[in-house]
Design a binder for these strands. Sequence first.
RNA 1: GCGCCCGUAGCUCAGUGGACAGAGCGGCGGACUUCUAAUCCGCGGGUCGGAGGUUCGAAUCCUCCCGGGCGCACCA
Length: 506
Amino acid sequence: MPADPVSKLAAALASAAGADVELERPGEAEHGDYATNVALRLAGTRRQAPREVAAEIAEAAAGLEGVERAEVAGPGFVNLFLRDEWLSAALAEILADEDAFGGGGVGEPERVQVEMVSANPTGPLHVAHGRNGAYGDAIARLFALAGHVVEREYYYNDAGGQMDRFRASVEAARRGEEPPEDGYRGAYIEDLAALKGDPVPLMLKEIETSLERFRIHFDSFRRQSELELLLPELLPRLDTYEKDGALWARSSAHGDDEDRVLLRSGDRSPTYRAADVAYLVDKLDRGFDRAIYVLGADHHGTRNWYAAVARMLGYDPERVEVLLYQMVNLTKGGEQTRLSRRRGDIVFLDDFMDEIGVDAARWYLVNRGPDQTIDLDVDLASERSQKNPVYYVQYAHARIAGILRNAPDNASNKLLLAGPLAPEERELVKRLAELPSVVADAVEKRGPQGVPAYAIRVADDFHRFYHEHRVLESEQQEFRLGLCRATRTVIARCLGLVGVDAPDRM
RNA sequence: GCGCCCGUAGCUCAGUGGACAGAGCGGCGGACUUCUAAUCCGCGGGUCGGAGGUUCGAAUCCUCCCGGGCGCACCA
């Protein structure tokens, strides 16, 4: 059973009250340590006045261990005021769980594949790919913490016309000529032209180097060219028809918005849609319970396509999940840059990392919900790096590391209370206890943005505590050292989830 | 035209049914002989795009409208 003191309290209250209870932290101190609106919810079905129901629940709550008193307030809220002993026990539970705290909570662990980035190897990764990776990797880390078995995969579209144009562009540069009409241009093409051999493997190498630098480690890579070999066997299993000399999937009959071409008229070469089919089968037949695709919002039309393919082949479409994220707009010196590949003014992920650092880059790209377009001023993000929230959080971690460095080796781990807890101590413990629900919420919503937001609150509560109280050589040294250790764990966990370092010194 | 997403403080954004709507940045004013001042404290700042509706209760759910982004290939 993973450590989650708040859920335990809620469960105890639920059985005392005879109804499901959710606890929330009220904004006002007068409203207690935790509050529940369960009486307001129950009043309707029980045909009782909300405050009457609340009074019953408050009475039950007051009898629970650790509860000092419970009050009915407002329209029917029940506010709980907890004893210091409850907070101390909660902290002990967090510390005992150290390595796993925040995780667990999934009933059935699944084998999950997160496929992300998957940029065509026709050029270096740019910032939009960074968002894909930052988001997908955070989801992967969240799933893993929650208890699932996760693998990360990159899919190379190494076949088709774009790859031909890419090779032709490099070849042209080697001959000192202009690239073809729809070709690729830019300094990186010149760089590749200066090297020998097929530019594609060189590009793959460069992409993989960028990804490692961005702290995303892939377990596997799949290639479109390999998957296409499976098509002769797979296509007959689909619902298809011939039209205008091409082979079409009747996907609209299976939930897609329209039918899709699988084999082109003329040379009957496979479209990338055909490769999608092979890849989906490949994923599901490798035994993943869940295949997660991370795609930019410009691909939202493919959501129904994947589900339709799964249905046509007799797989449960629930196993296929498409996560979408909105675009990234960078501004530099107030000037907008469009992140289109065909132009020279794009900002590459490596440039972005050079400019603002890997930590800030990872942070900024998951900081916002996937449905939110990111507007980011690169100059601002690097110029004001001292005031970035990411450093604020890291600083809290470094401060704690400093205290623990200076702590006596023989410090006790007992958490004995030498007196009543200060408000800052109580707030910090309650904040730390929120982690399991923050993680669970992020997993459920497929949205990691709550994690950095929460990390800021933890840092906030810690800095406030630090400012008000001395840890070493204080009467509460034991408890406070425990509080520091737990805070360090929680901050490190949050930063780890979004791929940011947790430094011991700054 | 159809589909997806967004519209919350000067700026960038949290907040998807609960108690007077939050944070960072920016602005103004304070706090360092003490474990890291990359910190802390205070002040100012909002018709939650608009209009209806559901609800004891709506930024949050429903409908319509307005504004913005992105799609709607035998490219990937």
